[in-house]
Structure formats: C-alpha cells, structure tokens
Design a protein around this nucleic acid. Structure first.
Lengths: 235, 235
DNA sequence: GTATCCAATATTGAATGCAATCTGAATGCG
DNA sequence: CGCATTCAGATTGCATTCAATATTGGATAC
C-alpha cells in the first residue's frame, strides 16, 4: 500500500461541505468552496488523490465545475496538478509554515498600522465586542468557537485597512494557516495571551498610534509562530 | 454608444499573445497567459467586455479553456465576472495604485531583508550583472529593455528569499504593477535613480545587513510610488 | 530471475450541445 | 405620453461526448 490515499471511500461525505443555499448558476463556486473547506478542515489530507470523476459524483454535478474548482485551488496552492495525471492535495511542510508566518507577521503588522491610521468609526467597538465574546469562549474553554471568533477579529481588522490588495493577501494567508493541523488556541494559557495581545492592538488603534499598532501586531504574530511550532513539534 | 468597448474588432490580433511553444494538454494555461499578457500589455483595456466565444474564436480553441482562464483571471483580480452576464477587464483606479504601492513597499522590504540574511551564493553577482545591463540600456535610453531588466532584477531578488508565499504575493503585485499605463523608467532622470537605489540594496545584501537592505528597498518603493503618481497625474 | 517492451485501461484535456437567464426593445395599458 | 410587461435574441452555466496520454500489468527476450 502506498502513501497516497484516495477519496474513493469518502464518498458522499464530501457533500456536507456544500453550503445549502446555493442558487443556480453558482455550482462552480459552491464546489470550489466546498473542496477548499474540506481541505482546510483536514478532511482531505495532503497527498490525497482527487479524481475529478469521483468528486463530481460525490457532489452530484458534472466534471466541468469540478475541473474549474481544481484549477482555482491549484492557483491558491492548496492542490497540485500534473497534466494528464491528476490532482493531489498539496503537502505543507514545517518550512512552509515558517515561511508563512514570516510573511504573515509583516502583513498583519501593516494591516494594524493602516487600521490605526484610518480608524474608521465603529472599528474599535467592533474589535472590542469580538474580544469580549472571545473572552467568554475562552472562559468556557470552547476552542472551536474561540477559533472562529479569532478569525472574525482578524478579518475585521483587515477590512478596516481599506486596502484591497492587503485584504486579498491576508485572505490567502488565512487559508494557508487554517490548513495547519490544530488550533494554537487550545494550547495551555494561549487563549488569555491572545486576548491581551489583541487588546494591545486595539488600544494602539484607539489612540491612532500606527507605529505602536504595527509593533504589537507583529509581536502577536511572532508569538503565534512560536506556539505553532511548539504545537507542531509536540509541545 | 456606451463606455463599454468589445473585443469584437480586435479579432485575431489576440493571437500574437499566444506563446508559440505550447504543447498539447496545456491549452488552458496558454490561453490564461495570453489573456493576462494582453491585459497587462494594455491591449485589452479596462471595461472591455470579454465574450467567451469571441476569445475562443480568436485563439481558435473551444470555450472551455477560455472559461477556465476567465475564472482564474477573476481570482487574480484582473477581470470581473458577473453571473450569466459576462466578464470585463477590471478597472484600476488611482486609489488602487496607492494601495498597491503601500503593500509592495512592505513586501519588497521584506524580500530584501530575507535575501540579505540568506544571501545565497551568486546572488550579489547576478544582481550586479543585471544592474550593469540596465546601465547599458539606460545609456541607450532603451526604456522597454530597461523595464524588462528591472522586472528580472526584482524577480531575482524575490527568488533569493526562498519564501514561496512571499514569492507568490510579489508575483501578484508584479502583475498589478504591469497593468499601469506607462513605465516610470521613462521619466527624466528616473533610470539613473533606480540604478543607484538598486545598488544600495545590493551593497546592503553584500554586507549581510538585513535591516539596511529592508530600509533602502522600502525607500526605493516609496520613490517609485512618487514617480508613478507624478506620471499618472501628468507630471 | 530480471529487465524491457507493448497493449489495455484509467484518467484527464478539450469540444460540443443544451438549458438557464440576462438584456433590451417592442408593445399594450393607464 | 410615460411606464410596466412580455418576448426575442444574445450570452453564459453546466452536462455530455470525444480525444489524448500516463500508468500499469503482463508477456517476452536475455
């Protein structure tokens, strides 16, 4: 038995990644999102061979939207295509993770600075509101919910930059980060740490301190990388 | 007559963007690259309506690879799709340009720093060699050649970072920058300025000065943005 | 027993056809 | 005369079909 697994026996389970409210004319988008979710979620693990026919059958659509979805995911770096041979889920090495966090540190820092400079009305309140919900989730040790809220917090921040390119790049970073095995938020003491680091960013934004916001946001990411490595290397 | 132009009368001229050595099984890639080139080159201008079967006819392929190409370019932000209606070349506002350069400044700075830290063997020589060719092109006032060499220089730098994410993002930035109307290298005195700014980056890399390389690279980009704005606003 | 070649098969690449739907103009009604 | 409605044409979305090619298993020669 080789290391390559197939999606054959996963069968119809893939369907649960399809969002229900898909209107006509959006099949390709729905399939793309579903496949992306399945990969990010870890349901489709690296080196899994994705046969177009199989996926099409699981989603009960034709191969055409599946083909387009595959190509898009290949452009995003989530899968690897080889002509006339097939598509496999891309592996993610420790080296990749380090490279990812290096870039992320810079982009998140830039986002914090831009957000502080623009500081659109309601931003501080929104970040604080998400922060308080995160606090509640942390108190209940509800890591999945904490993780979703964390995502929401970072999205709110990058939306506040008003920079479409930065937003797009941070979106791609987010996709890549979500592929990593387990959330770092489950690490002992990390949840509280994240809350205080986020708070530092928001306070800097509140006083329109761009440089300060950038600094604490970068420190937040450096710490996140540390924890990530600790988790991946088995604490 | 509305502001939307069509590709109808461009006809077969699109074919000149197809690279000749396209082997079988790579039609979609070839079409994608050709369309991207045509947009970056300014042959297909913003708001141009791209009809699938028109493009397919021009390239003498079926609509399938054209469709996939359109979707990929939409993901890259070069075109805008609306369901059941069509695809148009995305506009590029002055605001977008500013946003682009803000992000670019950070990414190029990071690339210079990483390149200085790693400093793979042969990098300094390669950058200097491209630099000397740029000097020759500048002496002859050969702006198109200078522009190509400039691209090559920046690519060499980002390849030296060994960071795939940074490389991908800078690649996307490069695509966006290439869409801008005219090269800033034709601006009076800019060519010489670029040469000395590049040299400052290389010297910093040579002495493994990461922070210094980042600083001069960022200054290089800030200056590039200034010139770009001057050019776009009519000097 | 092993290496090499060949053909059968599996799988993807691209073309074609049909269905859905958006646009725009002509038409009917107030 | 203005506005809503409907219908025809144009265009994209997806399914299906055909073509090309990589893989793999086996037969054969050494």
């Amino acid at each position: 038995m080789c290391a390559v697994t197939t999606a054959r026996n996963h069968g119809k389970d893939l369907r649960r990644y399809l969002v229900p409210g898909t209107q006509r004319g959006r099949t390709t988008d729905a399939v793309t999102d579903a496949l992306r979710e399945a990969i990010l979620d870890g349901f489709l693990t690296p080196t899994t061979w994705l046969r177009e026919d199989e996926i099409a059958g699981a989603f009960e659509v034709s191969r055409t939207p599946v083909r387009e979805a595959m190509r898009r995911l290949a452009d995003e770096g989530l899968v690897i295509k080889t002509v006339h041979h097939g598509t496999t889920v891309a592996p993610l090495s420790l080296e990749d993770v380090l490279a990812l966090y290096v870039v992320r540190e810079n982009l998140e820092g830039l986002a914090a600075r831009l957000a502080a400079v623009r500081c659109p009305s309601g931003l501080v309140e929104r970040l604080d509101e998400i922060g308080s919900r995160m606090k509640a989730a942390a108190a209940e040790a509800d890591t999945p919910r904490l993780s979703r809220l964390n995502l929401e917090w970072h999205r709110a921040l990058r939306d506040a930059t008003g920079n479409s390119y930065l937003g797009r790049f941070l979106g791609q970073v987010e996709h890549a980060v979500r592929r990593l095995p387990a959330s770092t938020l489950g690490h002992p003491g990390r949840a509280e740490e994240v809350l205080s680091e986020h708070d530092a960013v928001v306070r800097a934004i509140e006083r329109r301190d761009g440089a300060g916001a950038e600094q604490v946001a970068k420190a937040h990411m450096r710490r996140a990388r540390e924890i990530r490595l600790a988790v991946m290397l088995g604490e």
